[in-house]
């Protein structure tokens, strides 16, 4: 993709502007679909119908978007105008920057950095700054509390995330996303959740990798502030958390960023453990290995995880702050260290 663009437009700024456009389009469509899906899933789980009026419900999100566009853009009088307006952009930009290293297929990846996954970890921590600024600049106690909780939570859960990612990196021996995916080629048994490529001894690692997979999934869930880890925006106590004061398009940007993050972390989990864009059948069915099929595989895997996120959201109640911290420090991190040790031992031996 990059090469193609360079050939077409030359090695100039235009190439690098066009490069991320497909992701932006995908992200917009995904957000539209995911909002609707979330509402439908939640509705059916509660034996309701969900939106079913505007174009049989399918156009509901579009209608909501139009509504948000038209809404008055309110800045509270006592808010810090500059930072208040800056914050949604930081959060959204940080989310979108994370997409640069997500490999959608063998031909398309924003930038195949050789530190890809590390970059992703670092970039997602940028959104913390945006959240903090949003909470502070709103000059509202709910926003501030929400922001503080969000930041405490995200920083804590970055540790198990990083440790779980490290396990895959240790086995793969690379940080580049594209290479990690390529290593998992050749069928479902070569995915990292089953130990990646290797001989029969790799199955010893199965429990550890599965544990790492669970740790990664849980901690990314916490990093996106989704239920059961949604204490930063706990409706019943904090109104809406750090974006309490936001309305109209700025609220939409936070919303967009949240859904973007949902897919981003799902995509990371899928890339690291479930073979990214690799088809589960390996070389058996060559049609399923074409770039188009790869994109479909990848989005499918991502969407399955997004669905599980929604499923969890509408099943579980919210954790308390102390429970949240206990889960992180007493369960996820020790388990991650044991995993790390075991996988390290296996690699050395």
């Amino acid at each position: 993709m990059e090469q193609f663009l360079i050939d077409t437009f030359g090695d100039n700024i235009l190439t690098y502007i066009i490069m991320p456009v497909p992701v932006l389009i995908f992200l917009s469509l995904f957000a539209l679909g995911a909002v609707l899906a979330e509402r439908k899933v939640s509705a059916y789980m509660q034996d309701r119908y969900g939106p079913n009026r505007v174009g049989k419900g399918i156009l509901q999100t579009l209608a909501d978007m139009i509504k948000l566009f038209q809404k008055e853009d309110i800045t509270p009088a006592k808010a810090d105008k500059l930072l208040y307006n800056l914050a949604p952009f930081i959060v959204f930009t940080a989310t979108f920057m994370g997409y640069a290293v997500i490999p959608f297929c063998s031909l398309y990846i924003g930038a195949d950095l050789n530190i890809g996954i590390f970059y992703f970890l670092a970039i997602t921590s940028l959104s913390i700054v945006g959240i903090l600024i949003a909470g502070w600049a709103s000059n509202n106690k709910y926003s501030l509390f929400g922001a503080m909780r969000a930041v405490a939570q995200i920083i804590s859960y970055e540790i198990p995330t990083a440790l779980a990612i490290l396990i895959v990196v240790m086995i793969a021996g690379t940080l580049s996303m594209q290479e990690i995916v390529e290593l998992q080629g050749g069928g479902i048994l070569n995915w990292f959740i089953f130990g990646g490529p290797g001989g029969a001894t790799k199955y010893i690692l199965l429990p550890f990798l599965f544990a790492a997979f669970m740790v990664l999934y849980i901690s990314t869930l916490a990093e996106t502030n989704r239920t059961p880890f949604d204490i930063p925006e706990a409706e019943s106590e904090l109104v809406a958390g750090f974006h309490t004061e936001y309305s109209g398009m700025k609220f939409a940007m936070f919303f967009f960023a949240e859904y973007g993050q949902m897919f981003a972390v799902s995509a990371i989990v899928a890339t690291l453990f479930l073979g990214g864009w690799q088809s589960p059948f390996g070389e058996l069915i060559p049609v399923l290995n074409t770039p188009v099929a790869q994109i479909i595989w990848f989005i499918l895997k991502g969407c399955i995880f997004v669905f599980v996120q929604m499923w969890l959201r509408w099943t579980l109640p919210r954790l308390r702050v102390d429970q949240l911290m206990i889960l992180c420090w007493k369960y996820l991190i020790p388990v991650s260290f044991i995993n790390l040790f075991a996988v390290g031992l296996y690699i050395v031996l």
């Binding site: 530190i115 670092a122 921590s125 503080m148 920083i155």
Partner: peptide, 24 residues
């Protein structure tokens, strides 16, 4: 590249957040 990302991760994700947190 490694130093760049480390810069973002440690200085922005860690120290700066701590700083703002403290001020707040």
């Amino acid at each position: 590249d490694f130093i760049a990302v480390t810069q973002i991760m440690i200085y922005i994700g860690g120290i700066l957040v701590l700083l703002i947190f403290g001020v707040m």
